[in-house]
């Protein structure tokens, strides 16, 4: 069961409209290394975790990642909210607007829709956790690429926070991986 809490994981108040950045950022919602894939990956994998440590950690990180989906979507929403159709067209978002208006559709920065083929569920604890560790590193790298794409401090501050979460999650997954490896899985 899930409960909603009516605040974000980290404050977001973007003052400057930036449509190109919104287009790039969208990938951290619906792209291969994005938060939606992360959340669904851990959520799906938790069912085959063999003990209390694995079950709780995957469940809790999956939940946190859903909060990060909300953060990314909030950024995209705030960056595009007051855009005119002409501005959207000029920023390369004309096709996006045609398909989705100003709705936030889970896709990557090219507009490719989200797909569950971005992640695997093998039922093998070491295989799944290795993927989770790689996923956290890929998300960290993507956040760094995104940071390099903007000079808006309102955006950078949030990306630095989210990047740091990838580092923490990687460390927890690695600890769990090492623990299972030692247990002989």
């Amino acid at each position: 069961m899930f409960k909603y809490v009516k605040h974000l994981n980290y404050p977001i108040n973007i003052k400057k409209k930036d449509l190109k950045m919104a287009k790039y950022l969208l990938t951290q919602f619906g792209g291969a290394n994005g938060e939606l894939a992360a959340s669904l990956r851990y959520f799906s994998q938790k069912f085959s975790m063999p003990d209390e440590k694995g079950k709780s950690l995957l469940n809790d990180i999956a939940t946190e990642e859903l909060g990060h989906c909300e953060m990314i979507c909030t950024m995209v929403h705030q960056l595009t909210e007051n855009a005119t159709i002409e501005e959207l067209k000029a920023a390369g978002l004309g096709s996006m607007y045609t398909e989705h208006g100003k709705g936030i559709y889970p896709s990557d920065s090219f507009g490719n829709p989200f797909t569950v083929t971005y992640f695997a569920v093998t039922g093998d604890v070491l295989a799944d956790l290795s993927e989770d560790m790689a996923a956290e590193q890929k998300a960290r790298a993507t956040y760094e690429n995104l940071i390099n794409m903007t000079d808006d401090q309102d955006v950078i501050g949030i990306l630095l926070f989210l990047r740091q979460r990838e580092i923490v999650h990687f460390n927890r997954f690695k600890e769990l991986y090492d623990y299972y490896k030692k247990k002989g899985y």
Binding site: K6, H7, L8, Y10, P11, I12, N13, I14, E70, C73, T74, H77, Q78, E81
Partner: peptide, 10 residues
């Protein structure tokens, strides 16, 4: 929370 006119904007 995602509104730019309130919530965590403060």
């Amino acid at each position: 929370p995602w509104d730019n006119t309130g919530g965590s904007m403060y």
